[in-house]
Write a protein that binds this DNA or RNA. Structure first.
Length: 328
DNA sequence: GGCCAGGTTCGCT
DNA sequence: AGCGAACATGGC
C-alpha cells in the first residue's frame, strides 16, 4: 500500500461504492490556510493522523463508528478566505456531515478572531516583526481533549523528532484504518483501542513503561466513565489546569499546552517548555535562556493572548525563520 | 559512549 | 518546598 504522503489528487478515480459530499467553510479573516495547515502538521508533511500535501489537508475521522476521509483546500484568499471541504465515506448522512463540519472548523481554527491579539502585538516591538511574518496563522485544535492529552504525553521530554515517530507508531498500530483507493489512512485511536493495547502493547512502539501506564490509565478512566475530559470545556482556565494536573502523567506543561491546543483558550503558556525558554531568551535577553519563573513573569505583558504568542514563536522557530526575524 | 531532548513522578532531605 | 534520579529513544 502506498503511503498517503505520496498521493496525488487522483484519489477519486476508482471509487465505486464511496459516497462523497462537499461543503464550504468561511474562516474569520485574515486566514492563511497554508500556514495554519502547515502548523497543524508541524511543518512536516504528516503529523499524527493529519496530512498536508499539494495544498490539501486530509484527515480520517471516526464519527459514530464510521470512518470518513476529509479533504480540505483553500479556494479563497487571506482576507476573503473560503475553504472547500470534501467528505468521503462508505455511507453519509446529515448527522455525519454536520459533525465533520464542526470538527473541521475546530481543527483548523476557523472561528478564532485574531484582531485583538494583532492590536496588542503591534504595540510590542519585539513581537511585532514575528507576528507580522505569520499574519493569518490560526491555532489548529485537536478534535478531542483525549487526543491532545495522549499526543502531549507522547511528546514529554523527548526530542520533537522522536515524538513524531512515536505518534505515527501509535496511530498505525492502534488507530482504526481504512483503505481509500489503495491508500491506507488511520484515525486517532479510541480510548477503548488503547485500553485493549494495554501497557505491554504500548511499550512495543518504544514508549517507556511509565508513559505507557499514563496513557493506559487515562484511557481506562475514560472508558469506565471516571474521567470526563470534554466536560472541562465549561470550566475557567485555572480549573482546567487544576483538574488536568490531578491526572497522573499530566503536569503544568501539559495542562498549559492543552489550554492552547485542545481547549482553544487564548491565554495558555507552557512556561516550563525548554524550547520556549530558549526562544524567549533570543527574543529579549540576547540569547541566554529564561528560567521558568522569568518566562512566566515576562509573559504577563502578553496576557490574555499568550496562546497566540506561544504559537507564533513556535511557528517562527520551527519554520527556521526565527533568527532572521530577530536581526533587524 | 555520554549527554540532551517541546516533562513528570517519586523518594529523599 | 526543593532537589535529584529514573524513564526509552534517537541524534550529535
Amino acid at each position: 500500500l502506498k503511503k498517503p504522503s505520496s498521493l496525488g489528487i487522483t484519489l477519486l478515480d476508482n471509487f465505486k461504492k464511496m459516497e462523497r459530499t462537499f461543503m464550504t467553510l468561511r474562516p474569520e479573516p485574515p486566514y492563511d490556510f497554508h500556514l495554519t495547515a502547515s502548523h497543524a502538521v508541524n511543518f512536516s508533511s504528516r503529523y499524527g493522523t493529519d496530512d498536508y500535501n499539494d495544498g490539501v489537508f486530509r484527515r480520517l475521522f471516526e464519527i459514530s463508528g464510521k470512518l470518513c476521509l476529509v479533504n480540505v483546500r483553500s479556494i479563497g484568499t487571506l482576507n476573503s478566505p473560503v475553504l472547500e471541504v470534501e467528505i468521503l465515506a462508505d455511507s453519509l448522512n446529515s448527522d455525519i456531515v454536520d459533525s465533520v463540519s464542526r470538527q473541521a472548523s475546530w481543527l483548523l481554527g476557523i472561528v478564532e478572531d485574531l484582531s485583538p491579539f494583532y492590536r496588542m502585538a503591534a504595540r510590542d516591538s519585539k513581537l511585532a516583526p514575528i507576528v507580522k511574518a505569520f499574519i493569518g496563522l490560526h491555532i489548529p485544535l485537536t478534535p478531542s481533549v483525549y487526543e491532545g492529552l495522549v499526543m502531549a504525553i507522547l511528546g514529554q521530554q523527548i526530542s520533537s523528532r522522536v515524538a513524531r515517530k512515536l505518534r505515527s507508531q501509535l496511530i498505525e498500530n492502534f488507530g482504526p484504518s481504512q483503505d481509500f483507493n489503495s491508500c491506507l489512512w488511520y484515525a486517532f485511536p479510541s480510548p477503548e483501542g488503547l485500553v485493549t493495547a494495554d501497557v505491554s502493547g504500548l511499550r512495543t512502539i518504544g514508549l517507556s513503561t511509565r508513559k505507557s501506564e499514563y496513557i493506559a490509565d487515562m484511557s481506562s478512566g475514560i472508558v469506565t466513565g471516571k474521567l470526563d475530559l470534554e466536560k472541562l470545556h465549561n470550566q475557567p482556565d485555572s480549573e482546567i489546569v487544576r483538574q488536568l494536573t490531578a491526572i497522573r502523567g499530566v503536569g503544568e506543561w501539559t495542562a498549559q499546552w492543552l489550554l492552547i491546543r485542545s481547549f482553544g483558550r487564548s491565554d495558555g503558556f507552557p512556561y516550563g517548555d525548554l524550547a520556549l525558554q530558549r526562544t524567549l531568551g533570543s527574543l529579549v535577553a540576547e540569547g541566554s535562556a529564561f528560567s521558568p519563573d522569568q518566562a512566566r513573569e515576562y509573559s504577563q505583558r502578553w496576557s490574555p493572548f499568550r496562546s497566540y504568542v506561544t504559537t507564533y514563536l513556535f511557528a517562527a522557530l520551527r519554520s527556521g525563520k526565527l533568527t532572521e526575524l530577530l536581526g533587524d
